[in-house]
Every structure is written in C-alpha cells, then in structure tokens.
Design a protein around this nucleic acid. Structure first.
Lengths: 201, 201
DNA sequence: TTAAATTAGATACGGCCGTATCTTATTGAC
DNA sequence: GTCAATAAGATACGGCCGTATCTAATTTAA
C-alpha cells in the first residue's frame, strides 16, 4: 500500500502549517518554536513558510488567530467609566490567559526589534492596521463624557493608550493580571488620570 | 621588524574588547553588532567574550557603562514635585540621548526574552541588582509628602514605577522624549496619579 | 627557577536563520 | 488534452549563535 502522496497546496497547506505551529507552540513554547521545526512537523520545508509569513512572530500570530479562540475585544458599556475600565481589563486578562505569558513576551520582544509594537494587542485579529486598544478605549471615554463623569472625551493619544501600556507592563514585570491588579490600575491610575471620581469617593 | 605579539590578558584584554564593542555600536548599531564581529575587531575570539559576558546585551551594557558617559541618575530636589518629576524626565531624556533609541530598543527586546527588565534603566551602572528607577522616585515622593503636596509618601510599586514604564513606552512608540512629552506625562499622568495639584491650577 | 594554575587562542560542532536556486507536481486557461 | 503559469519541494549557502575541546602562553606560588 504505497502512500499516494498528493502534494498539498494553497489554503490546505496553510492550514496544515498553522496546525503544526499551534501544536508546537503548546508543546515547546514560543522561544523553542522554530520555523524549521514547524516546517518539519508539517512535513514541508521552510521555504514554503517564508513564502507566507516573514518571521516567527507573524507565523505565531497567524496560528493564534486561527486556533487561539480569541474573539477580539468588545467595547464594554456598563454604565460607569470605572466598571467599563474593569471590564476592559477583564477582557485583557482573558486574552493573556489564552495566549500565555511566555508567548506574549516573546512576541513583544520580536516585534520590538522590528520597530513596531503599536498594535500587537488586537493584531491577533490580523490585518486592519490601526486597530489598537485605543479603538476600544475611546468609546468608553465618549460614553463617560456624555454621562458627565469626565469633563471631556478628547484626550491625548498618550492617555488613551495608557490601558495598553499598563497591560504590557504587568505582563513584563508580573507575568499575570489578577483581579487586584486590575482594581489598582483602574482606581489608582486610570480614573485619576481622566479626572473621574472613583465611585468609592 | 616582526611584531612582538604579547598575549593580552585580564583587564587589558577586557578593555580592548569593550573598546571594540563600543566602536562597533557606533558604526553599525545594536542590531548589526555581533559577538563574533566584536571578537574579530578586538583581534581575539568569541570564546574569550563568552567567558566575560553571557550575551550581546550584557556586553553592550558593559561597553556603555565604560564609554557611554552616563553618570547615573541623581535625585532631584527642586522644591516641588512637579519640577522634580520634570527634572527626572530630563535626566531620562539625556540618558536616551547618550544611548540611542535603536540600542535601547534592542536591549529591551533582548532582555525581555531573558525574563528580566525590572532594572535595565540604571543598570547601565551595572551590578547593584535593585537599583531601578523607583530608587530615585521614592525620595521625590518623600519630599513632596513632607511639604504637604501629597497626602502620603507610600504608594504601591505599580505607581512608583510609573515614570520608568512611561519612559519605555515613549521610546517604543515615539523614539524620543521631547520636552512637550515630558510636560504632558508629568502634568497629565504623574501628578494626577499621586494626587498632587498641578502648579497650573 | 620551576611547577602549577590560569586563561587566551584556535578550532570545530550542531542548530537555526533567511535567501537563492532549481526541479517537479498541480492547476487552470485555451 | 496541451501548455503555460503557479506553487511546492529539495537543496545548498553564508552568517551567527552558544558550547566544547584542545593548545600554548602567561602568571603565581613555592
């Protein structure tokens, strides 16, 4: 029974490679995953992989987008800025849970060297360049301003991006985003910065 | 006149290597600098380098500490928390100026993969493990509390480390730390977070 | 001065990167 | 069905990493 080896092509091949990449990611982690290793596991050659993705980071992001079960961020609308922020942090924690700290760090480091980073968070959704966390934060601010919780909705990019930065910092220095951390970040940093009175006052 | 090749050893060799590393860093930048390249430039072999530093990041940090002309952070004491913070940001900007954004990013990325990062900023001073930016920030808070500018001096680590995080963010996303950015960070983030009334109120 | 301890230097290794080149299977247009 | 276009597969390359091994120079202790 000689195996009839038909040559895979296009989407079928891509899927097989992403499956292999995803499996390797679970087995060995981000750092230990290699392009050659994935190619071998998918019974193809790295030439084929390089035709599809420029480097390990993009390959892993593609695999995560396909199999990671991350559905993207949703704009929370809970009635107060504080609970909106907490909901957002909860989504971030869930994202990290699916991804894994080690993978997140590795991706971060790799992208850093290639002069990017802005996005990265929701870029698990791939394409759609400017789809960073600020696209989620801005509506929260709009709602809060409409309710009169904060005096205005337009803030400098630096502030709108703060939630994302703080998340990255947590992962880097603490490798997790537990509930207490989320409370502290919201109550002691985000709300004061946007001039919202914490609901505890 | 045959060159009498005496074999360098110890500190003399170390210095020669660091000089070569520093030169390569200026010439080619961090990413393009290689251990083998530095070894060759210093007319020795990489074996010798690996006996002294575990990786490129540590080698470059050592070279920077020796030749970078960075003298370390100094605790500012200007009379108000706002101007203290601004002075600190100024020192950070000067540090970045000496280092170079590309090098900073590269170091950041490399260290990230090796599960560190906490320090890194003042670790240009090497040794002395816990010598992070928070060692500079805490005195500022002590002084401000003593003056009554803020209600208390003890804050969670997360807040004390904020200046360092924000610096990293600036470098990553904006590749510079101009004066306007420093004002915005201090007035719109740091002072609100610590509950200090900005001097503009 | 000689012997022992260090440490520089030379070399080689396996591993992976990213690219280039060439062959061969598969597809799709006609 | 034939042929041209496309894409997979196979291989090889130079470059660098980090480690291991061996030698020979230099230092130090005696």
């Amino acid at each position: 029974m000689a195996e009839k080896k038909t040559r895979r092509r296009g989407p079928a091949l891509t899927t097989a490679i992403l499956e292999a990449a995803w499996a390797q990611l679970q087995e060995k982690g981000y750092q230990a995953l290699t392009i050659e290793g994935v190619a071998a596991a998918a019974s193809t050659t790295k030439t084929v992989l390089y035709r599809r993705w420029p480097d390990k980071a993009h390959l892993v992001i593609a695999a995560f987008a396909r199999f990671g079960g991350f559905t993207g961020y949703v704009v929370p609308d809970t009635g107060s800025l504080r609970t909106d922020f907490l909901a957002l942090m909860g989504q971030m924690a869930a994202f990290l849970d699916k991804l894994q700290d080690e993978t997140f760090r590795g991706l971060l480091a790799d992208r850093l060297q290639h002069l990017e980073l802005d996005n990265l968070l929701t870029q698990a959704n791939d394409h759609d360049p400017d789809h960073g966390i600020q696209k989620i934060v801005q509506p929260l601010l709009d709602h809060a301003a409409a309710r009169g919780e904060i005096t205005h909705a337009q803030w400098p990019d630096r502030l709108v991006n703060l939630p994302g930065i703080l998340l990255i910092n947590e992962v880097i220095t603490r490798q997790a985003l537990p509930l207490e951390a989320r409370y502290e970040i919201v109550d002691q940093i985000l709300l004061p910065v946007f001039g919202a009175t914490s609901s505890r006052d």
